[in-house]
Design a protein around this nucleic acid. Structure first.
Lengths: 209, 209, 209, 209
DNA sequence: GATGAATGAGTCTTCATTCAT
DNA sequence: CATGAATGAAGACTCATTCAT
């Protein structure tokens, strides 16, 4: 079914994908209008349903497509040879920010999708969702240098604390940015602040030199 | 406009509020049907729009009403005389669980509301949202005993680490529960696990005895 | 669901019923357009679906309604005290012709309905169909005078021959009328011709005087 | 227009014809989907409309084609040298049953076509219809032995009575079979029953020996 | 206050037909 | 010959909102 779509003019593909992405990101699955999508993609009503047999299939295709795109771009740039967990997390946060700045609508869409409540789409999404995310997440903590942690410490749980802390911080910054909704807020300051947290956690969980 | 509603038979008020709560929690703002609401509230179409000039106003009223109810019930039961931050956070988590068990639909609604993507409602909600949440959040960390923390430590940021960690843990447990969707999962075990994290953080951030 | 419809302005009821009747008779179930129905009934799109929850329910209501009307009108006027089978069949044919002249669209609709192939509607229709028709048909042959038939003749099968013959004749005349589609063709002649067949059958199956 | 079609690979012709036959028989004219036809015929959309300028022409071609096929097969096997009307009618009924068993889809299609309500197709069909049927029907009663009938009897009308009776009986059996929708019902019994009617009519209309 | 009939723009989806390749 | 991308009108049905009663 999707082969039809994959084999057409890439420029048109992109137009359709972007139109759908924006509409779904903005309005959610149920409320998004296929009418709006075709209008802003500049194609006819019939054509959309020639490519995707219904709204749901379009949505799922979008989700898989962009999840793929983002995950690939992410791991392409992520340096997994860095074995210090904090360095790794720092580059990870920077990378995430770069991607968000580069494809903000894709991020909006993925976030909206992961919160999607529409019955029709919820189940299927969660499955694909977790597969991808679990596969990806586990890679983030592969091959970490454990020798740096204090002796006797519970490393697995410590990693969790580190992760939750950095996530919490990251979300806080995001919220701030959204509130100001000045397109770009001061990333440098945010990273300095992140370093402070990292230092606090190093002091707490790493062997003291 | 809402004065009309406030001055009617409280039993009918509740019927309407509950009908709307369920419908919005289940289907989200856009997809919720005023038809279903009036049917399950046992009132006429016209009457609903006599009380609330449109769907949006009804939604906002609901949100404010139940946010109020929950926050009040929360702080009613929360013991702010306990000055040890970990004890406070522990009772806070327990309280949250109790409230979720007692009013699951209200929680569903509030969560759904905070994730609401519908344009019409998103903006306004966030405003009200943050006012309440900021007012509430700041109270949670009032009058904490700072003397327990290691000397020279950055207390404000340490509190953040503690909070983010416990939130992260809490969310993880919620996700697990959702995935199993057995009505109730093993809370005792979860609390034991929480204590492990708390002990780790005490060791890291409190003065060693 | 139908109570809504039954309780409105009878003049409007009739407008809707007639509009739907014509559309369904002309185009069949699947091809009939609810758009056309509302347009020719002079009501809004929403209103039709306020009365009938979908096209199918409207169709079924129509069918039951007009089957009822026709059967009632039919048996109201049919004289079941006449015990001679040929006299009875003659009056029956006359009556059928009168009804067809009086409500031609209803007849078109009922005939079309009984031939309806649309899956959605076929099953349900056949049930109601046969109940009504069996109940009606059996009454047509109640209390016939059997003493007129030749001795030793198989009366039940003879009645079948009579019925099939008169039906065959009736259909032939209908076909002729349709082909000429002059609104009215010469009924008198047709009845004289019917009498000829009746006389032939009397000679064949009745005792000779 | 049809010359294009007639001059292509016969195997492909048959594939297209059968695909269309099935679709039209199953869904009726309006509801049949040219999409389904091309899919199940394994040809492209454009090609179908290259052969037949539109859906209607395809339908009409099908109808004429299969009417021809059936009529030819019918008269091929029908023995017109048998001059006794009842023997002729008996073999005719048997033949009809054999053809129905051999080409059920064709019969379904022809029956559905003769009941077709779609405006576009109704008129044209009836014309073609009657030409064929009249030409065929008249042959069925050619060269019948009139000497068997009672003296003074109206032979033309008697033949009608015989025909209508046997048609009526045949339809009744078909209805029964449909109601039971066991693929095959007891034909032997049906033929015995037919013989009973035939004997009754012989007694009534033939010279007594 | 209370009712529910009425509206009509909007929803997704289908379909015969055309035409550039 | 043959393809299948492209069209857009039409399909059934929904829904928040209004208003006469």
């Amino acid at each position: 079914m999707t082969s039809k779509f994959s084999s057409i003019n890439p420029e048109k593909q992109e137009r359709i994908l972007n139109a759908a992405l924006k509409e779904f990101a903005l309005k959610g699955y149920e409320n998004a209008s296929t009418n709006e999508i075709v209008k802003s993609a500049g194609i006819s009503k019939g054509l959309l349903f020639h490519y995707f047999k219904n709204k749901k299939e379009l949505y799922l295709f979008l989700y898989n497509h962009f999840a793929d795109v983002m995950v690939k771009e992410f791991f392409n740039e992520l340096d997994l040879s860095e074995r210090d967990i904090f360095e790794r997390m720092k580059t990870l946060m920077i990378l995430k920010n770069k991607l968000m700045a580069k494809h903000p609508e894709v991020f909006d869409f993925m976030v909206a999708a992961s919160m999607e409540t529409a019955e029709e789409v919820k189940g299927i999404l969660n499955n694909t969702n977790t597969e991808l995310i679990q596969a990806s997440y586990s890679r983030l903590f592969e091959n970490i240098d454990m020798t740096m942690f204090r002796d006797g410490i519970d490393i697995q749980r410590t990693i969790n604390i580190i992760m939750w802390t950095l996530q919490g911080f990251s979300n806080q910054e995001l919220e701030k940015a959204k509130k100001l909704n000045t397109g770009h807020h001061d990333f440098d300051e945010a990273f300095k602040e992140a370093e402070v947290y990292i230092d606090m956690m190093k002091k707490a969980f790493y062997k003291s030199l």
